[in-house]
Every structure is written in structure tokens, then in C-alpha cells.
Write a protein that binds this DNA or RNA. Structure first.
Lengths: 238, 238
DNA sequence: CGGCAGTTTGATGTTACTCAATTTAAGTGG
DNA sequence: CCACTTAAATTGAGTAACATCAAACTGCCG
């Protein structure tokens, strides 16, 4: 968790995948004349970044690595609400609310950018382009939540896992070039289980089935799609 | 579905329960000098109000009766995403997007108010109070979605139903005075089933259990709470 | 080599689904 | 007011999906 000087470590300036998001807009509108309204830091894998009910004056963007947002129940169960990829705002709501309504953890080593909420809000009022970027995030977040809710409510184990994989594949592909249908995939089976509401044991069985049927193989850090059509037949919502 | 003249049938002017929402803000900022940027209509129970992928220039608010927002799968399954109560925007996203990402039905006879999106957006840019109202809606929607996702992923049948009842109770109580723990409750068991991802048969069993144990009784249009503490013990997230 | 975290596999248990029949409630028209 | 119809809720029996428990296996690192 060492501090890093602003706008040095953050990869989005090179890769350009934050194009639609808050962070880069702010940099554009700021031209770096200024103070400490923003800072970056590096977080080790597994580290909790934010906790439910915690209060913060900052709005966070994940700009490198993977993270996830979750709710923890008193008895130990947890629901992973979504996975955070480079360029993702933790949540649109944190632009308006001090208090975290959820917890956040780093899945891999991750770089996060924190911006003063006041600063964000004042620019939001002044700059319609930023409002548009925020609205886009809001729409995407809501649609993803609606779909996940549908998957959890209506889908079988196989369908849910297939849906999760497809959803993540689309998001990963938007951020890096995919060759030979091999996607970087740092999730453990426990993460899949907590995201789709199954036990890790059952996730293992379903993934074995997928492997045996030649649909996908998930092993150690990469997801290899063998039969995209079949995966979509199983897990597509439409 | 007969047309009704603007701001006549809509009950929020009497009851004042739209205080935090878009509709009334607009009326305040308009002072009724004007044109056809807004209209109301009355919809019979069971009628579909909006369909997925439909395009509309309007933003909708439910201002009387009950409705629900849902996703329909090709094979007939459907997930109810949330229930709409008087004062609810169908979805914050429809302020920014033409296309419906979900479908909407009237649960009871309902009154809906439609406002031109252009009008909404231009006022949004001009009037920070409206932006605040919208942000509040956004936060509430997102938090509700996160919690529902957690309930669907982690909770047992009893827990899910208890959670749904508690959630609705809070929202109903915010809109009308509740005496003797009796809540107006127009849902059929099929609606509960589609909202929490169970079959109607199983919903019936769980509700029978609740009744036998003296927790709650749901019968024909009203929900009678017998043991609030027990209901909360079962279905509260915290 | 030993230890650990993650995955796999098997056996058994529980929850919720399916199918089908019955009951209840709410109209509707005579 | 009473048959008749129809939608909704209830109940029972059998089954499928997923959870739980426990043991074995894998790869990795010290």
C-alpha cells in the first residue's frame, strides 16, 4: 500500500481504456496545474480496500489490476456484487455518498486512483461532458445489476456460471486484445461461487463438466474458450 | 388507458409523497405556464406499460397504484427486478437512455406521468436541486439492487421472502400511515415467486409456515405482521 | 521433504422443484 | 340467491438440483 506519485503509475494514460470514464476526463480538465485533489496507490492482492459503512471524502477508480465489490453477512456468507476491471469506478453512487454501502477487495495487485469528491462534484456541475460520462457508467452499472439479478433468480448453476464468464469476457475484451480465445482470468473458484451464489464444490463440478464437454477450460489464471456458440447457448440471457 | 389532463389525477399533489423525486421538482420549476412537455394517464391492472427495447422520448414516473419492472426470458421465465410505488421513477437510467432495458407492468390500476426527456435533461443541467434528487434516486436504486442480489445469491427461501416483505414494508410505510401492522399488499404469490426466484408452490408453503408460526399473514390485499422481531431475525441482512 | 491453498471426487442430506389433485375465493349470469 | 366459471392458493408424493461433509489429490513454496 505504498503511496505513488499522481499520474505516474496509472496505466490508463498509455492504454487509453478509461476513455469513457471519470478519471481521464478529470485529467483533461485539470491540465495538472494543481494540488492534491487526486492520488494513486498500489494495493497488494487480497487486501481489503474499502469496508461497508466506512466514510471517505474520495471517489475511487480502479486503474490497474482486478478487484471486486461485495456484501458480507454476519454469518460469513458473502455476495460478490461485481468485479472491478481497469477503468471502473467502484460505484457511481460514491460520487454522491460519503458512506460506502459495500466492501471492496483487491483480487490481484491493483492500482487505485482516489479523487476528492468535492472536486468531482463541482466539475460535474460545470462540465456536461463529465455528467455524460457518469450517466454512461450509471446505465452500464444498472443494466449489469439487473441482468445479474435475473441470472441469480432464474438461472440454473450451469447457466449462471456461463453467464458470468460471458459477461466478464466481454468486459475483458474491451480492455485488451484477445488472441486464440484466451482471456486473463485471475478468479479462484471461490470467487465464482460467491458471485453466482453456489458452493465452490459445485462450481468445480460444473467447470469440470464444461471442460469435459469442450466448452471452456478455466485453469490457473486464464480462461480458454473452446466452443463459444455452446457457451452462449447455455448462458446468454436472450 | 384514457388520457387525463396534466396534474389533475396525479395524487402526489395532495399526498406530498413525491417530495424527493423528479416529478414535483419539475412542477415547481415550471409554474405551469407551459405546453405539452408532460402528460398523465391511467392504466388498468395487469397492463404492460413498457417493453424491453422499446424506444421512448419520455421519462416515466409512477404516481398512483403499483407496478413492477422485470426482465422476460425467451422460455417464459421472468425476473421481477423491483416493485414500483407511487413517486417512483421507473428507472434512473431512462433519464439518459431512450431505449428501455426492461419491461414494466401495472400491478394494480396505476397512474403514470410521462415527461419529455429533453426537458428533463435541460432542467437537470440548469437546476442543481434536480440533479440532487436524481442522485438520491440513483443511490437508493443501486443499494436496493445490491441487497436484492445478495438475497438472491445467499439467502434461503424463507430468508428471501422475509427480506422482500421487510423491504416492501419500509417502502410502503414511507408513503402512508400504517396502523396495527397492516400493510396494503396487492401482490399475488406468483409475483413474490418471480421476485425472489422461487416457484409459486414453494412460496405458498413458506407463507403457510410463516402464518402457522405467527410471523406474518399475507391474504388478499393486505399483509398483517404478527411478530416483527421474528420477521427481522429471519430476513434482515445485518 | 513438509506444509499449505486450491481443486477434485465420492457419499449422503436437504432444499426446493415438478406434477397432479383438491380447495378456496371471486366473479358472472341466470 | 344460486349454479357455473375461472384464477389463485393449498396440499401431497416423488424427484432433481445443489449443499454438506470428508477424504484424496495437485501444484507451489519454503
Amino acid at each position: 500500500m505504498q503511496a505513488v506519485s499522481p499520474c505516474v503509475m496509472c496505466p490508463h494514460r498509455d492504454l487509453g481504456f478509461c476513455g469513457t470514464l471519470l478519471d481521464i476526463r478529470f485529467e483533461q480538465s485539470l491540465s495538472h496545474q494543481g494540488g492534491n485533489w487526486q492520488h494513486h496507490r498500489l494495493v497488494p492482492a487480497g487486501k481489503q480496500i474499502g469496508a461497508r459503512n466506512q466514510v471517505s471524502e474520495d471517489v475511487f477508480v480502479l486503474c490497474g489490476g482486478w478487484g471486486f465489490r461485495f456484501l458480507q453477512l454476519p454469518d460469513g456468507r458473502r455476495q460478490i456484487l461485481n468485479f472491478l476491471l481497469p477503468g471502473d469506478l467502484f460505484s457511481v453512487t460514491s460520487v454522491f455518498e460519503q458512506r460506502f454501502r459495500f466492501s471492496v477487495k483487491a483480487l490481484t495487485e491493483a492500482q487505485i486512483s482516489a479523487m476528492r469528491r468535492e472536486e468531482v462534484q463541482s466539475r460535474l456541475a460545470a462540465n456536461p461532458e463529465i455528467l455524460t460520462a457518469l450517466a454512461t457508467s450509471c446505465v452500464a452499472e444498472t443494466e449489469a445489476a439487473d441482468e445479474m439479478q435475473t441470472a441469480l433468480g432464474q438461472y440454473s448453476a450451469e447457466e449462471r456460471i456461463a453467464y458470468l464468464l460471458l459477461h466478464l469476457m466481454r468486459r475483458i475484451a474491451a480492455r485488451s486484445v484477445i488472441r486464440d480465445q484466451r482471456y486473463p482470468f485471475p478468479l479462484r473458484q471461490q470467487h465464482i461461487a460467491d458471485a453466482v451464489g453456489l458452493t465452490p464444490v459445485h462450481v468445480s463440478r460444473v467447470l469440470s463438466l464444461f471442460r469435459d464437454r469442450g466448452v471452456v477450460e478455466v485453469s490457473d489464471g486464464t480462461l480458454q474458450v473452446r466452443n463459444l456458440a455452446e457457451l452462449e447457448r447455455i448462458g446468454s440471457l436472450h
